[in-house]
């Protein structure tokens, strides 16, 4: 921390103005102001095309509407489900792969990673670099009932019940499959993050544990996971934010909201309300405000749970 002389020099003033003022100005004007404006719009019946000043205030009507709209509540439920399962599946998978890669080598002497670790690490990260919209489009074609690769492979190995099986067209499978596609896109990123965290654990700790005769499972559960719990918390929050949005993936995979709206999420309903059909911008803005509040609440909850169970407050990456 800065402990030097307190008087304000030109150096210090110009420094603070440029270093803090400039980024903050950009941020306030282009991010914060538009969102405050959106909150303002959520109290009106603005339809998106006329001058905003001519819209009427309906105050909380839009919010009342949301909580009586079964479609929006359905979408909210889907987001809640995604926020629970997406981080869970992604983190378990990423953590498993990370542990296997970092400590998959033999158990004598110093701990070492599995053979070919860097290859697996590089390959796993690939999906993360692909634009979400392309991941969605690609998997939609891969999952196509007739011409898709997935059913092609399944029927080739003799599973004829999957001939023309509409993974994204059945209520039972549309949501799970969509989740797996998102997981596919993110596992590599979190794996990389966990690998980095595990590698920063001093190897003396591992060696001590080994001398005590702990097996791999015990080591992972008792040593590795507790030591990187802050990273897991961060991953949970990031992935949760993705789950609460999920817009691009869901739109690409199920442009209409899935069979019987089984994959409809809030952001998609927001988009349809504001941009489609009736151009109810006031209502759409209210949905966005709810979405932002839910996301904030989610992050707070994860912090709280981690803290109550003995973790640190700080966010690490």
């Amino acid at each position: 921390m800065q402990r030097r002389k307190r008087h304000l020099s030109f150096d210090k003033i110009s420094f603070m103005v440029v270093f803090l003022g400039l980024p903050l100005l950009i941020y306030l004007v282009l991010v914060i102001y538009p969102f405050l404006q959106a909150v303002h719009l959520s109290l009106t019946n603005w339809r998106g095309f006329g001058p905003i000043s001519e819209a009427d205030y309906v105050w909380l009507d839009n919010y009342v509407y949301l909580f009586t709209s079964s479609k929006f509540m359905l979408a909210l439920g889907h987001n809640a489900m995604l926020a629970v399962f997406l981080p869970l599946i992604t983190i378990i998978l990423a953590l498993t792969l990370a542990i296997v890669i970092t400590v998959g080598g033999h158990s004598h002497g110093t701990i070492r990673g599995i053979r070919g670790a860097s290859f697996y690490r590089i390959v796993s990260f690939f999906p993360y670099v692909i634009p979400g919209i392309i991941i969605g489009l690609m998997w939609r074609l891969l999952l196509d009932p007739g011409m898709g690769l997935v059913n092609g492979l399944l029927t080739t190995i003799g599973l004829d019940q999957f001939k023309d099986f509409a993974w994204l067209g059945k209520e039972e499978t549309a949501m799970p499959v969509s989740m797996l596609v998102i997981v596919w896109g993110f596992v590599g990123f979190y794996m990389l993050l966990f690998i980095a965290a595990i590698k920063s654990i001093p190897s003396e700790i591992y060696e001590a544990v080994r001398i005590d005769g702990a097996g791999r499972w015990t080591t992972a559960v008792r040593v590795t996971i507790p030591l990187i719990r802050d990273n897991i918390q961060t991953a949970y929050i990031y992935m949760g934010i993705i789950a609460l949005d999920a817009f691009i993936y869901m739109v690409a995979l199920n442009p209409t909201g899935g069979p019987n709206y089984s994959t409809l999420v809030m952001s998609q309903e927001l988009f349809n309300t504001a941009f489609g059909g009736q151009n109810m911008w006031g209502r759409g803005s209210a949905m966005g405000v709810v979405l932002a509040l839910v996301t904030l609440a989610f992050s707070g909850l994860v912090f709280l749970v981690n803290r109550l169970t003995g973790g640190k407050d700080a966010v690490s990456y």
């Binding site: 009932p145 007739g146 011409m147 993974w167 994204l168 059945k170």
Partner: peptide
């Protein structure tokens, strides 16, 4: 009616009519 339409991108479905004549 050919099953699976709900999981098929519409131009892909249409191709099954105009090209594969299913």
């Amino acid at each position: 009616v050919k099953p699976g339409g709900g999981g098929t991108q519409f131009t892909a479905a249409q191709a099954a009519w105009s090209q594969a004549q299913e």
